[in-house]
Amino acid sequence: MASSETLTSQGYIKHHLTNLTFGNHPEQGWTFAASGKEAAEMGFWAVHVDTMFFSILLGGLFLWFFKKVADKVTAGEPGGAQNFVEWIVDFVEENVRGSFSGKNPLVAPLALTIFVWVFLMNLMDLVPVDLIPYSFQILATLFGADPHHVFLKVVPTTDPNATFGMSLMVFLLVVYYSIKIKGVGGFVGELTLQPFGKWGLPANLVLEGINLLSKPVSLSLRLFGNLYAGEMIFILIALMYGHNIAVSLGGGLLQLGWAIFHILVITLQAFIFMVLTIVYLDMAHQHH
């Protein structure tokens, strides 16, 4: 909270909720955005470097660890790492077997990737809010950057780009498999011929269209909303550290309590994302 002396609470919160954005600014060309306003002005051609960095780092960590175990996996007595990996794989496989009735070699690895990746990205929420951003600020200052213009959000799932990226991918898979399994006619028929029969076609299209489109939206917004709110509460608790010692201690207790509760939330959100993905894909594989 070194920045609290120079920043207001509002500024502090705003600072924490701004991504490190690299993009094409209409006036300055390709550069890092110095403020949230500049980032917004960049429009579509901008990349949240922090979101990309942490999500790929965590995804890489997940795949590196699992691949390492998979390379020397044995059917005999498993070691500690293999035991751990098998526990997760078994858990995911059980869920897939329970919810997915079709046959598709993609679904289980997809579910595993979602579960572990989302969990790891959510886990970043438990890192004290200022630790990584502040360290990064100091590091960037060494390279001559203005600390007030160095932003960093360490939890990729609090960036709707990340959650929508995943849910859109799932949505594309749902559409792809719906058409592959049921044919174009079957898929269009599903959208237009029920629940009211062919004379209620417009109503059917509205209902089923909303039903279909709500899947990716709800999937990503649920995850984003939960994590964004959780992050926000951590930031608000962190604000207490700027006051006297009693308030700071209270803040410490609150942070501990919220972090413990949040362990449940981040696991649950990863689990929900995984299960809903399986269920949506299962619906895509089912004939009516």
């Binding site: 917004a40 429009g43 051609w45 995804g59 795949l63 990737t113 929508f164 995943m166 859109l168």
Partner: peptide
Amino acid sequence: NINLTLVLQMVAFAAFVWFCMKFVWPPI
């Protein structure tokens, strides 16, 4: 803001899933 990150995230996600399906899931 919704921006290019979305597309890049989709690509990263697809790559991760592909890698998992190809090299991680089957042996385990």
